[in-house]
């Protein structure tokens, strides 16, 4: 029994990475109907910036600050840096092609992804990098048979805090209402005096920042990062977004968590090698039964 619980907690941990990344996909999709292929690379870049912060801390002999402070600083720096990167990418790669329709934007997004991936490779090198071990919190907690690392708990707590904060902003504030209105009907929202560009800036700051936080946490959790990791995590997170129902923020969160848990249970009880196949099969089956995802609206097409 405790094995199942452990797998579920591991699943929730990686699920929260997916969920944080998925939120960025979902926000951009909701407003622009664009699959932001560069989003996974925001996540990877965040992970590398966190890495640099931690390495710098070691070099500066500030280990005395303790691992949690290091993590906090890394998360904060990565998040804030990626806000800037997100806005820059939106300006350079997306804004000029919105009007041209959806497909040019897809190519542009793929171009941006290649660009960012290669920036990471040029700055940090093509080899794997490892997060400094002595800056990663190692505390463990035992509940009877069940062992959970302190890091896992912090990751879960931080993810849930960020997701709740985002949920609050989107659902309860005036600005969140503007974002939702724009996602629902851009033209009507514009007529109501909602500033489309401000909404765009909002989603392209928060989305990449959340992705970057996930990136730092992945670095701390798995220790090893590579410049191509954005693709793998991006793909999983995008899967989570669709699983939940694209453009639906709570859907994206649950989609991510469900995906993580499925993946871990699949790895433990079916086969570690086939776990991703298992995940994609579940996705396809869900979509066959519910063509707009688990929490997506089922609307008849207006004819």
């Amino acid at each position: 029994m405790h094995l199942v619980l452990e797998q579920i907690i591991n699943g929730l941990t990686i699920g929260s990475f997916y969920a944080l990344i998925a939120l960025g996909y979902s926000m951009v999709y909701g407003v622009l109907k664009l699959i932001n292929f560069a989003h996974g690379d925001f996540f990877a870049m965040g992970s590398y910036i966190g890495y640099t912060v931690l390495v710098f801390l070691v070099a500066g002999a500030t280990v005395s600050m303790g691992p949690w402070a290091g993590m906090g600083l890394a998360v904060l720096t990565a998040g804030v840096s990626l806000m800037a990167v997100g806005i820059a990418v939106e300006r350079a790669a997306y804004r000029p092609v919105y009007r041209a329709g959806r497909l040019p934007a897809v190519v542009s997004a793929l171009g941006a992804s290649i660009f960012l991936q290669n920036v990471i490779m040029l700055v940090w090198g093509p080899r794997y990098q490892a997060y400094p071990a002595d800056l990663i919190p190692a505390a463990r907690i035992h509940f009877g048979d069940l062992t959970v690392t302190m890091l896992q708990l912090v990751i879960l707590a931080l993810s849930f805090a960020l997701m709740s904060a985002l949920y609050y902003v989107i659902q309860k504030t005036t600005f969140g209402a503007a974002v939702r209105a724009t996602a629902h009907d851009r033209n009507t929202a514009a007529l109501m005096g909602i500033n489309f560009n401000r909404v765009i800036v909002f989603i392209f700051t928060l989305g990449p920042a959340l992705g970057a936080v996930a990136g730092v946490m992945v670095g701390m959790y798995y220790r090893q990062i590579s410049f191509t990791m954005g693709w793998n995590y991006g793909l999983k997170a995008f899967t989570a977004t669709i699983l939940g129902g694209i453009g639906n923020l709570p859907g994206a969160m649950f989609g991510g968590l469900i995906l993580g848990v499925l993946e871990m249970l699949g790895a433990a009880y079916i086969s570690a090698a086939w776990k991703d196949v298992f995940v994609f099969l579940i996705l396809i089956l869900v979509l066959i039964v519910r063509p707009t995802g688990l929490f997506g609206e089922r609307t008849a097409e207006k004819v």
């Binding site: 092609v97 171009g111 290649i114 290669n118 040029l122």
Partner: peptide, 21 residues
């Protein structure tokens, strides 16, 4: 060498701005 994929990505973006169709 190292920079070509950087240019490759940028050209994809520019191409879609200039000739979206």
């Amino acid at each position: 060498a190292m920079y070509r994929m950087l240019v490759f990505g940028s050209i994809m973006i520019v191409m879609m701005m200039v000739r979206p169709g």
